[in-house]
């Protein structure tokens, strides 16, 4: 077992290179809806049960299905109203089950990135070859359904092997959303190629805040606004990233959508915000900052004696 991920170097926020965004923006703001398919009767994985109850587990299954039937369109309409394009964390089986959703995303120029095949198929215990097969499937499925190249990755249901990041680099994935250690993109140390993490934030994730922590919708609104305010303040010194990861079955509920609209209205009402997508953040970072940051991290590592 690894003691640590061995994926990134220590880099204190108070002592690192300055990051800038287009047009002098202080915060790169992106919204990442998770468009997911949970199976009715999925196979078991030794490390984790797909559903808490014996199958069928109708309540959580149907709760999530609400997202695709009702919540998605409501969420999409609200985002469009504020000019926010989504970066979709996609269970790619949606391409087969609900191609209407893929078409709607493409029509609005939304990004599609990988969230695995199904949210009930975990990466735990996959051999390297099995994980490769899954990745190939994801990449070709999104390409065939949308014409988009997969640039981003959020592991299905946040499940991993210790090969995951190496394989992402091998497949030319540009950025991962799976590391929660930072408010700026960070280089990921891999042997096979370039990879960066783009902040995705579990702290801002509707599932974590509303379901796991049991917060009210109004409290979630306060959290999102306060988080933005702080990053906007800090972004004057060093560019920051704020992501709102969403699930249409939660944020797309009628009683929550108004609060979400209020947050988008608030954030997009600021001047120095770059309203963007994960892919665009990664591309900008590679073009303007990656080499400089890697050089700085390498210098620090050498000064510490290679640790």
């Amino acid at each position: 077992m690894l003691r640590e991920p061995e994926l990134y170097d220590y880099s204190p926020m108070c002592d690192r290179p300055k990051i800038t965004w287009p047009n002098g923006a202080r915060v790169a703001f992106w919204v990442a809806p998770n468009v997911e398919y949970y199976e009715y009767d999925p196979p078991q994985n030794e490390s984790r049960r797909p559903w808490p109850k014996p199958h069928p587990d109708v309540v959580p299954y149907s709760h999530r299905d609400y997202g695709n039937r009702a919540g998605f369109f409501r969420m999409m309409e609200t985002m469009a109203k504020y000019g926010v394009r989504g970066s979709v964390s996609l269970n790619v089986a949606i391409c087969q089950h609900h191609p209407e959703l893929i078409k709607a995303c493409n029509d609005l120029d939304w990004e599609l990135f990988s969230h695995g095949i199904y949210n009930t198929r975990f990466t735990y215990n996959m051999t390297k070859d099995q994980e490769r097969t899954m990745m190939e499937d994801v990449i070709s499925t999104i390409m065939d359904a949308s014409g988009q190249k997969v640039d981003g990755w959020l592991a299905p249901s946040l499940t991993y092997t210790t090969n995951t990041f190496e394989l992402l680099a091998e497949f030319g994935i540009q950025y991962t959303c799976d590391l929660f250690h930072d408010d700026q993109p960070q280089p990921v140390n891999t042997k096979s190629g370039r990879l960066i993490s783009v902040p995705y934030s579990l702290e801002m994730n509707d599932t974590v805040v509303l379901s796991m922590m049991g917060k009210s919708s109004r409290h979630y609104t306060d959290i999102l606004k306060a988080n933005f305010d702080q990053l906007y303040e800090e972004g004057a010194e060093n560019g920051q990233v704020m992501c709102i990861p969403l699930h249409p079955f939660l944020i797309g509920q009628p009683h929550r959508i108004g609060n979400f609209a209020e947050v988008l209205d608030y954030i997009t009402g600021h001047d120095d915000v770059w309203v963007t997508t994960g892919r665009e953040i990664a591309a900008h970072y590679y073009e303007h900052h990656y080499d400089n940051v890697v050089a700085s991290l390498t210098a620090s590592r050498n000064a510490r004696g290679g640790l």
Binding site: L158, Y160, F180, H181, D182, D183
Partner: peptide, 19 residues
């Protein structure tokens, strides 16, 4: 509280020591 490798909890705690 998650199966190994739990990057979720590791990196969330590590956020505190970096940021």
């Amino acid at each position: 509280v998650r199966p190994y490798p739990d990057y979720w909890n590791y990196t969330l705690r590590d956020y505190g020591n970096r940021i």
